[in-house]
Amino acid sequence: MRMLLTSVAMSLMLFAGIPVSDHATAVAWYERFFGRPASFQATDTESVWELAENRWVYVVENPHNAGHSMQTILVDDLDGIVAEITERGIRPEKRETYDNGARKAIYRDPDGNEIGYGYAPQSG
């Protein structure tokens, strides 16, 4: 089945999950990565960070699927975000620049999940 997006106005929300092998270890790393404690703890093994209104990232203990997540968060000031994360002791594993001017800094959590920050230039 193919889904087409239309121009119908709709409220967009995001709840993106990252499976981890050990909840406590992941929470400590993501607190450093995001620069703050989780917004709330949903369960004993699931913690949630609200990145913007109606846009959340959560880590959940799920050892069987740990290390297989890929997330990219787009921001206006990629260099500023990377500098802040570096000050907290986490460095990007890799940086990418694409032909259209988009850029991305890729990080890996203790399980190997990829979480990146990216910048995409606005057209027009």
Rank of each mutant, 00 (worst) to 15 (best):
M1W: 06
R2E: 15
R2T: 14
M3K: 12
M3I: 15
L4H: 11
L5V: 08
T6S: 14
T6W: 07
V8G: 04
V8C: 09
A9N: 13
M10R: 15
S11Q: 15
L12S: 13
M13S: 14
M13F: 08
M13G: 13
L14G: 14
L14R: 12
F15L: 13
F15Q: 11
G17V: 00
G17P: 01
G17F: 00
I18N: 09
P19K: 07
V20G: 06
V20W: 00
D22Q: 13
H23Q: 08
H23C: 11
A24I: 08
A24V: 11
A26C: 08
A26D: 05
V27G: 05
V27M: 07
W29H: 04
W29Y: 10
Y30H: 08
Y30W: 05
E31S: 10
E31P: 08
R32E: 11
R32G: 02
F33Q: 04
F34R: 02
F34D: 05
G35V: 04
R36S: 12
R36K: 12
S39H: 11
F40V: 06
D44R: 10
D44S: 14
E46N: 11
S47I: 06
S47D: 12
W49Y: 02
L51M: 09
L51C: 06
A52W: 06
A52G: 10
E53H: 10
N54G: 07
R55Q: 14
R55G: 10
W56P: 05
W56M: 12
W56V: 13
V57S: 00
Y58N: 14
Y58W: 09
V59G: 04
V59K: 00
V59S: 05
N62I: 00
N62V: 00
N62L: 06
P63R: 08
P63W: 09
A66N: 03
A66C: 05
H68P: 00
H68F: 03
H68M: 08
S69Y: 08
I73F: 06
I73K: 03
L74N: 12
L74T: 13
V75G: 04
D76A: 15
D76K: 14
D77P: 00
D77R: 06
D79C: 03
G80E: 07
I81F: 08
V82Q: 01
V82E: 03
V82I: 12
T86N: 09
T86L: 07
E87G: 07
R88K: 06
R88M: 04
R88N: 04
G89V: 03
I90L: 15
E93T: 09
K94D: 11
K94Q: 12
E96L: 12
E96C: 05
E96K: 11
T97R: 13
T97A: 12
Y98W: 10
D99S: 14
G101N: 01
R103G: 00
K104N: 12
A105T: 02
A105V: 01
A105E: 02
I106W: 07
R108L: 10
R108N: 07
D109I: 02
D109H: 02
D109R: 01
D109A: 04
P110W: 00
D111Q: 04
D111A: 04
D111T: 05
G112L: 01
G112M: 06
N113S: 10
N113Q: 03
E114M: 13
I115S: 02
G116V: 02
G116K: 00
Y117T: 05
Y117F: 15
G118R: 02
A120E: 12
P121R: 07
P121F: 05
Q122R: 14
S123N: 14
